[in-house]
Design a protein around this nucleic acid. Sequence first.
DNA 1: TGGTTACTTGAATCTGCTA
DNA 2: CTAGCAGATTCAAGTAACC
Lengths: 368, 368
Amino acid sequence: MAKPTPEAPVLPLDTIMSGDCVAAMNSLPENSVDLIFADPPYNLQLRGDLHRPDNSRVDAVDDHWDQFESLKAYDAFTRGWLKAARRVLKPDGAIWVIGSYHNIYRVGATLQDQGFWILNDVVWRKTNPMPNFRGKRLTNAHETMIWASKSEGSKYTFNYEAMKALNEGVQMRSDWTFPICTGHERLKNARGEKAHPTQKPESLLHRLLIGSTNPGDVVLDPFFGTGTTGAVATMLGRHFIGIEREEEYRQIAAERIARVRSLPPAALEVSTSRRTEPRVPFGQLVERGMLRPGEELQSGNGRHRAKIRADGTLAGENIKGSIHQVGAAYEGAPSCNGWTYWHFKREGKSVSIDILRQQIRDEMIKPD
Amino acid sequence: MAKPTPEAPVLPLDTIMSGDCVAAMNSLPENSVDLIFADPPYNLQLRGDLHRPDNSRVDAVDDHWDQFESLKAYDAFTRGWLKAARRVLKPDGAIWVIGSYHNIYRVGATLQDQGFWILNDVVWRKTNPMPNFRGKRLTNAHETMIWASKSEGSKYTFNYEAMKALNEGVQMRSDWTFPICTGHERLKNARGEKAHPTQKPESLLHRLLIGSTNPGDVVLDPFFGTGTTGAVATMLGRHFIGIEREEEYRQIAAERIARVRSLPPAALEVSTSRRTEPRVPFGQLVERGMLRPGEELQSGNGRHRAKIRADGTLAGENIKGSIHQVGAAYEGAPSCNGWTYWHFKREGKSVSIDILRQQIRDEMIKPD
DNA sequence: TGGTTACTTGAATCTGCTA
DNA sequence: CTAGCAGATTCAAGTAACC
């Protein structure tokens, strides 16, 4: 199943690594994973187990001192794992990090400091958050996820049409509404307690992975916990690499993922954009005799005309050029999609030339 | 009206100061204001022009006040005004800062670095955000507000019951839904253009001030713009101090506030909640695992079948698309309500998928 | 005057390939 | 690297125009 390729020669696909996530990530080849999803801990503050970057222990003495020392330690921790994550990420890869107001501002600033390029931040709205019992603040009803590419110019993956389909045909927004993980989805340990304090819902990962990965991609999760990332990745035909320090979590995650069945490839096909379809030169319509040189095209609004020339360019009144150039010139617009702009006459009716392009594309791609 | 008290002897209440906000704040007595609301420049880094699909040009926020040379320069700016803000804030005062992913992580980290104590972050969900015209990212449908007290132990103001009342009797959550500022509320300058590129809606400030100030409190806004904070504060019987560099904005804000009449709070409650049934995308049933990709649906009349794909679209015999599109195609109808058309099998019985939609709606019956 | 349609607009880090 | 060019891409409201 995990077939090694020249691009990713030694990746431990679909396994859970143990130990510290920085060391584990540094043991992987650089530029090798497509996506990173990270749910880092943020309860390092004000705890007895707080350590400085040099590993000396921090004594909680006075509030102020403790707070700033905690922030410094947390920043060092964040820089450390993000640097290692950045190293293993492919140049066109992306990262998602989830957090709350306790830690997300440290994470976001560090991401930017390290050259990651924020694409969106996404709010997970919880339908059933825990209320604020003391009535001293607002109900903490959301968490924040930052989506960032490795650097500014990266060609990150975004399945726009699939996300639009998931949202009933309108563009997916930056606020996602899901219930927190409860019920039978919430894993229990051998003692009958909840197995992990911050288990994320699979619905969240489903949307995230559909939107920013393709089947066969490799998703790394350096804070694997009980393996939600691995379970959803497996179901959706993506590879995962998990890293988790705690033996008990690794055990529970492994058993969980073993129960997951991958979906058949047909179910994994998603709606694609026209951008991904093969390019058809307009001249091909002329070469194939679908349109004849000398024939006249009309704009969709009926206001403009142009004649087809033998080389697949158009001749308008005072302008000659491609279907796009002539359309743009007529409309006084910075650009124009000539395929949807121009129409021709058949049996008295006006037909978009895009119909002819689609005929050619249908011949090129085998229908399923 | 602005009666001087020993605690606030020389505050220029209900006026708009000119000049740089740091200098202006430093001219005020320390520990003197109850609340600060700040809408600092976001440091958007926009490249070229952006056009809508209809070729119209988007009016970008390219004002000189939003230009910074680098992240470092923006950080220095942020530290500077936050330090001055901290100085004038009463020990039990609080601050709100609004921003987007471009700047909010810098702001949040700096707040924490300076000893502010984050109480909540609040998401402003826009009902009518600008879409992502190129289909390259998610719709940027929210902005983030950070609410922080001056320090960890501060006795900040929070009108829990008032907020609960604003939210139809249930605890106010950390996600607030309001439209962006348009229509009559949007101020115009003498040239008939929008007076300010980033005018905030009064509804947002209304909720914020009801929640974290009391009548008679002093609210400072160091980036006053066209004075939304001042207008709402005045309306709600709070004092304001505005600081604004641009003469034109000060002028427009002063005229605006002069038109405001303080009203009894009871008269001000506007219905901000939308009581229409929330739209549930079919894809959410898949994300939530209520239906599985690959699973088959049948039409209610039993004549047609289609398989569910991972992005919430259906694959029929020769057609792919939404539940509505595939249903319409099978029936040869111009449209089709897929929710009532399609059924799935559970324990041998055929069940309408609309049942699942109702389950999700039942979870979502929240005012926002 | 009323109802329908068309047009406008909003804090935006908004393309990708080939020569 | 830049330049050139094909061609893909939008949602909710408010306002104006029109019948």
